[in-house]
């Protein structure tokens, strides 16, 4: 970047003004998080007496956090059990679909692709009723897979979690396909042709050329998709419902609600326990996340 987009050089008043605004925005975006964090470490007493965004020196406690972890541990386990395979499979299927629709040329592929892309924008409400009926009446996994629930000791509630996983895979495929396709379009056609002349089959080209080249894109897709699936509430509410297999977003809703006085320190601690996996992913792979959302 040259100096072109500058109107002045050096640290003029204008520049200081810009930095002041940008820092003000940092405060704006981080304040709710900051307020949440400091509150989560306060005792109920200190919470009532101190400013929401200032740490309470006298009333520091980790009790809220340990209570939150206690109440959320089942949800945490269930969310991991659901989100990890759902993320991996939707990314893998998205990559394969994008390859089949991009690097292999055949008529009508754009039409098929449009159906995939449109799938990104479907509001979940438009399918909730059928999905619930499908998983309860048409594909009753709790009956079909009964031996598994018995053997693993998970209980039939977990059939709902499996159904949720499959649903998330299906709904993750469109966006994953979009992400991979925009990447595969930039892969040189001549290179794929060279591999064909070299005697590689369509499957081998994927395995030996496309897949190794997709590693950076897998990082982007996995991160974005993990965040989306982890954060979802609606599908979990309808497909899993209340019970042993509830995911963490479901558990979070109920926390601190039933008490007579809203226990904000506990709620904040619970919110951060819920957000922790996505926050960690974001802190370590923020760049990939940004790529994912702008694709």
């Amino acid at each position: 970047m040259t100096q072109t987009r500058l109107d002045d050089d050096g640290l003029s008043l204008d520049r200081i003004g810009i930095y002041a605004i940008l820092l003000g925005l940092v405060v704006f975006y981080l304040l709710p998080l900051e307020a949440g964090i400091v509150t989560s470490f306060k005792t109920m007493r200190a919470y009532g007496q101190t400013a929401p965004f200032l740490p309470a020196l006298g009333g520091f406690t980790v009790a809220q956090w340990s209570s939150a972890v206690d109440q959320l541990s089942a949800g945490l386990f269930n969310s991991v059990l659901m989100a990890v395979p759902a993320t991996v499979f939707s990314a893998l299927l998205g990559s394969m679909t994008a390859y089949g629709l991009t690097n292999i040329d055949w008529r009508g592929q754009v039409g098929v692709y449009v159906l995939f892309v449109a799938g990104i924008f479907v509001p979940y409400q438009a399918v909730l009723v059928p999905l619930k009926r499908f998983w309860s009446q048409w594909a009753p996994l709790h009956i079909w897979l009964e031996p598994i629930w018995n053997l693993t000791g998970l209980g039939t509630d977990y059939a709902g979690l499996l159904a949720l996983t499959i649903t998330h895979i299906a709904y993750g495929i469109p966006i994953c396909t979009l992400l991979f396709r925009s990447y595969y379009k930039s892969v040189s056609d001549e290179m794929v042709e060279a591999a064909r002349l070299d005697g590689a089959s369509i499957r081998r080209i994927y395995r030996r050329i496309i897949l190794p080249l997709s590693v950076p894109m897998f990082a982007v897709t996995l991160i974005y998709q993990f965040t989306q699936i982890w954060n979802d509430l609606l599908f979990a509410l309808i497909i899993v419902g209340p019970g042993d297999a509830s995911v963490i977003t479901q558990s979070l809703i109920g926390i601190g609600q039933s008490e007579a006085v809203t226990n904000f320190p506990l709620q904040m601690a619970a919110a951060f326990v819920t957000a922790l996996p996505t926050l960690l992913v974001y802190i370590f792979f923020g760049e990939q996340f940004a790529k994912g959302v702008t694709a």
Partner: peptide, 17 residues
Amino acid sequence: PADRNTAMVFQSYALYP
């Protein structure tokens, strides 16, 4: 293509990066 006993050199070289 692979059974034709031909080998091709492409404009972009098409090397596997």
